[in-house]
């Protein structure tokens, strides 16, 4: 399994983390990538999933969105690029309100990587799949080719461009799924359970890739150690509201908070004993 060579080396000096790690919830001075305010939503069957969600993410931040099953995480994600709309509140991406008027632009700016790469990769070959987004936006020819290559290069999958997605391993498919979104040069990358179903090596490779990207990341996950490893800041969503927003290490060490919201650390894992590389 090939790692995205070289890139791992520069991680310790990464430009993410430090700039914003201390400013839990604060985005002062940094341009805002994503601003969610007062977001509430009920499904047509009456089930209310979100009850007024507020948070902001600054450019270049990597933030984890934690929460138990049924907390409304997926509903929230589907609001970020306007798949779901119609409730109360607003979502703003890089200053652009999510709504019918800017839908194409919003979908380009918000790159969602869905949980099952078989849903995300729907074209006959990896290359065409990565090209889909930019081509839908009107890009073609050499420029498109270059964009596709660059995106695949970022996830270490350039050698697999002409393979059909179903002939790749699960970890490789997940990485290609990330590339399909990177090719659109999004303002913010939204990952839904990025580490699910990955073996430890693929999990680490994906972490290396995510760290090497110079893009804002919102990572929806149950995998608390993964959140701690990758995201300096975390949000906890429970019963449709943000109940905590702060440094990932602090949140995970708050046993009371963890217990109240059904967030459990794996056996033997102590967030206080983890020293982050950077």
């Amino acid at each position: 399994m090939e790692t995205p060579g070289g890139k791992t080396g520069e991680l310790s000096a990464g430009k993410h983390g430090e700039a914003t790690a201390g400013a839990a919830g604060g985005t002062d001075g940094v341009p805002v990538s994503l601003e969610v305010s007062g977001l509430a939503f009920a499904y047509p069957d009456g089930h209310q999933a979100l009850f007024g969600v507020d948070f902001g993410i600054g450019r270049g931040e990597r933030v984890a969105l934690l929460g138990p099953n049924g907390a409304g995480k997926t509903t929230l994600v589907l609001h970020l690029n306007g798949i779901l709309t119609g409730g109360a509140g607003t979502v703003t991406v890089a200053g652009l309100p999510v709504g019918k008027r800017h839908m194409a632009e919003i979908r380009r700016k918000v790159g969602i990587v869905f949980q099952d790469p078989d849903d995300q990769l729907f074209m006959p070959t990896v290359r065409e799949d990565v090209a889909f987004g930019p081509a839908a936006a009107g890009m073609k020819g050499a420029e498109l080719e270059e964009r596709v290559h660059a995106a695949l290069e970022q996830v270490g999958m350039a050698a697999f461009a002409d393979r059909p997605p179903h002939h790749l391993s699960f970890g490789q498919r997940r990485r290609v799924a990330v590339a399909t979104v990177l090719a659109m040069e999004p303002e913010i990358l939204v990952l839904d359970e990025p580490s699910s179903n990955l073996d430890p090596a693929s999990r680490r490779e994906l972490a290396d890739i995510l760290r090497s990207l110079d893009v804002t990341v919102l990572m929806v996950t149950h995998d608390l150690p993964y959140a701690l490893e990758l995201c300096p800041r975390s949000l906890v969503l429970s019963d449709g509201v943000i109940v905590a927003d702060g440094r990932t290490g602090d949140l995970l060490s708050d046993e009371e908070l963890m217990r109240t919201h059904r967030l459990e650390l794996p056996f033997g894992f102590d967030p206080r004993s983890v020293t982050m590389g950077a």
Binding site: I83, I112, Q120, F122, F132, A136, A137, M184
Partner: peptide, 14 residues
């Protein structure tokens, strides 16, 4: 997933 990547009814010619 297609809609999220800008699909609006027709496949782009790649």
């Amino acid at each position: 997933a297609m809609v999220s990547r800008g699909y609006a009814g027709s496949m782009p010619v790649i």
